[in-house]
Design a protein around this nucleic acid. Sequence first.
DNA 1: TAAGTAGATCGAAGATGATCGATCTGGAGC
DNA 2: GCTCCAGATCGATCATCTTCGATCTACTTA
Lengths: 116, 116
Amino acid sequence: MIDLELVPKQKRPAGERCCEPVVYPDVERQQAERMAAVAKALGDPVRLQLVDVLRKHAGAVCVCELVPLFDISQPTVSHHLKVLREAGIVGSERQGLWAYYYVKPGALKELSAWLT
Amino acid sequence: MIDLELVPKQKRPAGERCCEPVVYPDVERQQAERMAAVAKALGDPVRLQLVDVLRKHAGAVCVCELVPLFDISQPTVSHHLKVLREAGIVGSERQGLWAYYYVKPGALKELSAWLT
DNA sequence: TAAGTAGATCGAAGATGATCGATCTGGAGC
DNA sequence: GCTCCAGATCGATCATCTTCGATCTACTTA
């Protein structure tokens, strides 16, 4: 199951105290924090599905259509939308009684590029 | 700041009780759960950087090189690696005293594809 | 103005998470 | 055997997260 080819051929010399790190200076503490924040917001099935539904719609979707999609209460949906909003993933617009949500263009770009 | 163009032109008829959901049956409850689990594991800056370092290495990296990269204790690094392992993102291989970790090929594919 | 509705916020509950020091495990070397 | 070391696990602490019912806000319509 484990691909042994991935382990470096050159074994660390036995009996030598570990270790001179060969590894990278971080080019990106803040970049990692930004991307982790986005990933964290997507790290809940409800939120991920919310983003999925919003992305599949061109335009924006009314909250009243989102709530019945899930087996959770309206305040909980509202909370999840807030988390997504605070992560910069979605935006919202009120029109009278209704609130419309949409995925912000480019919000997922950095994480998406890193993953590829 | 908010792009009003995103809001549908056709306003919901006033005075109509909300709402017939126009929205999607979920093609993907389980898919969402799988992807959310991966996103959740990446939703911590330390773990995201761990994956970043592992990915930039061809081959596998010794834990003893990973620990000094972060200002956290060895048990905490070990914990984060465990979280990544349980999410199916990394694998590990013991060689004598040392443990080597690597990113599992394809582990990020589904999430990456969805994000794109 | 009064009633009704959509959605946000509040407050509390219970669960999950990050982190640490201490300890355990098991291989290496003497 | 005994000692030392790398790494995993344990147990505790403190913070954060999910979820809910209840309430609040703001708009619409009668």
